[in-house]
């Protein structure tokens, strides 16, 4: 009886640990923080023992909790007093790999799925845009599912996807690396200066 209970508790861990690690890494941008987030997510699961209607509900719950924990950590005093990374440090890139082989946005096949520059650019966006974009493109979630996970309206998710893509375009096409580059480009003079440079 006890063994089966243990197995029951461990089952979600085996099922979701990789997914949660990837979601946590995309937010925290380093291995150790991502592992802490995964651990904390399962601690919360064991503490609250929520009842799930189906497997989708269970999966969505885990992702939502992981994203919330990431947000809490990023808001914490320690993180706010230290300099955070907008981009994923090169040393940490080897700790992240997607479990499938895919072709990147630049049109070439990636050997292990972990050399996509675009992925690192997505991770460099603000959380409001990063999470919908990451879940939509790299974890293959639908707009409805993302809306459920992030507790947002579907329209809001679509808007964030569109704006996130625009930010990426701005960043990649105009080489803007600073925060709020997209907003700067909307500014008349900012856009004109960039046009002159080009």
């Amino acid at each position: 009886m006890r063994i089966s209970e243990e197995k029951e508790k461990e089952e979600p861990f085996a099922k979701y640990k990789d997914l949660l690690y990837r979601v946590a890494f995309s937010n925290m941008k380093n291995k150790s923080d991502a592992e802490d987030v995964v651990q904390e997510t399962f601690c919360r699961y064991l503490k609250t023992k929520p009842a799930f209607a189906d497997e989708n509900h269970e999966k969505n719950w885990f992702i939502r909790v992981a994203i919330n924990i990431c947000r809490d950590i990023q808001k914490s005093a320690w993180v706010s007093r230290t300099v955070g990374f907008d981009e994923v440090p090169e040393s940490e890139m080897k700790h992240f790999a997607l479990p499938y082989r895919y072709a990147s946005s630049y049109g070439h096949i990636l050997p292990d799925g972990n050399e996509d520059e675009m992925l690192w650019h997505v991770m460099g966006l603000a959380a409001a845009y990063r999470n919908p974009l990451y879940l939509f493109y790299y974890e293959d979630y639908s707009v409805q599912e993302i809306a459920q996970i992030m507790e947002l309206e579907e329209g809001t998710v679509k808007t964030r996807l569109r704006r996130g893509r625009q930010m990426l375009k701005d960043r990649l096409l105009f080489g803007g690396e600073e925060k709020g580059q997209a907003e700067n480009l909307k500014n008349k003079d900012g856009f004109k200066n960039k046009e002159r440079e080009r």
Binding site: S105, Y138, D140
Partner: peptide, 20 residues
Amino acid sequence: ISYGECDKVEINVLEGYTLK
């Protein structure tokens, strides 16, 4: 179908589509 089941996946974030 999931990405794991596919023989090839193409993710094009800038143009906004994914192909499986």
